[in-house]
């Protein structure tokens, strides 16, 4: 059962930031799909929560000065249906389709997904390959941190207790970019990832790729970019040999974790298999628009 707690209900963002400024023990509550579970399980015991899920300033998706800007309280369900995301964040939208279940998606926010600092956050790998940044705001200041640097360990982020994640943003992709997301869970729906992968290709011409980005979730203490593999692939044509080597490298360069959902050894094996598969599919079919890569439940 949920323990008792106090709940602050700010009406505006400035009011929320004011309340957060008063004590470092005020904990933001967005969708509550992680926080309330932890309270119930007595994993965390905050005395005071602040409900930020309803703040208008944290809602909405917009394109601004060459960036896609997503408010931190935008829900996964919103993202799943958003036309701007369909255009500029296809790889993220793929992840929303296999995220939790419809009920959780309706409440879970993108800000909460990242701020929780879980290695298995499904929004993280797509956002990593989009080169996303996290906007952090406190009463008197605002800063932007690359997502790569935002999550520092299991349930650890660089967020200061008095700061809120207010937005997530990424530069609009150049023409010819194509991304793909794949989630491996122990069930097809409503499962936490054993492994998630996002891959993004930026195309120079049909043969060559200016850049390849690969991110992995749920395999290391934080969601990660696999730089060694990316470097190996970038610039050259994606031949089967290069892909095989990159896949191997992705696995070797990752310090995989063991947990209830799978062992490190299993994860390492599947990284190789899935990186290979995703890259091969992309290399062979970059002209076809649709990449129905997730084994998940599509609704």
């Amino acid at each position: 059962m949920l323990p008792e707690f106090e709940l602050l209900m700010p009406r505006t963002l400035p009011e929320a930031l004011e309340m957060m400024n008063e004590s470092s023990r005020v904990i933001p509550l967005a969708g509550g799909t992680s926080l309330l579970v932890d309270l119930r399980g007595r994993i965390s015991r905050p005395q005071m929560l602040i409900n930020i899920g309803g703040l208008d300033e944290l809602r909405g998706v917009r394109v601004e000065e060459g960036y896609v800007v997503v408010g931190s309280a935008v829900t996964i369900a919103d993202l799943k249906h958003n036309v701007l995301i369909a255009k500029h964040g296809q790889v993220l939208q793929q992840a929303t389709r296999v995220f939790a279940n419809p009920l959780v998606r309706n409440r879970a926010t993108i800000g909460g997904n990242l701020a929780y600092g879980s290695p298995a956050a499904d929004a993280a790998p797509p956002l990593l390959v989009l080169d996303a940044e996290v906007e952090l705001t406190c009463k008197d200041a605002k800063r932007t941190v690359p997502l790569k640097e935002f999550i520092t360990g299991v349930r650890e982020t660089v967020r200061h207790p008095r700061e809120l994640v207010t937005a997530i943003r990424w530069p609009i992709l150049p023409e010819g970019s194509v991304g793909v997301f794949h989630k491996l869970g122990l069930r097809k729906a409503d499962a936490i990832s054993v492994l998630s992968i996002a891959v993004m290709l930026h195309r120079k011409n049909t043969e060559d790729y200016a850049q390849v980005r690969i991110a992995l979730g749920a395999v290391a203490p934080t969601p990660i970019r696999v730089t060694p593999a990316e470097e190996l692939l970038s610039g050259g044509p994606l031949t089967p040999e290069v892909i095989a080597r990159a896949a191997q490298l992705a696995s070797e360069s990752t310090h995989a974790i063991s947990d209830i959902r799978g062992s490190a050894a299993y994860r390492k094996r599947v990284i190789t298999a899935l990186v290979k598969r995703l890259l091969t599919n992309l290399a062979e079919g970059t002209k076809e628009k649709k990449h129905n890569e997730s084994e998940g439940y599509h609704s």
């Binding site: 399980g41 122990l186 729906a189 409503d190």
Partner: peptide, 17 residues
């Protein structure tokens, strides 16, 4: 219980399976 009793990791098969 390693799952702590939480269903998300108890893995009964659902309609998708």
């Amino acid at each position: 219980l390693v799952s702590g009793g939480y269903w998300i990791d108890s893995k009964t098969s659902g309609i998708s399976e």
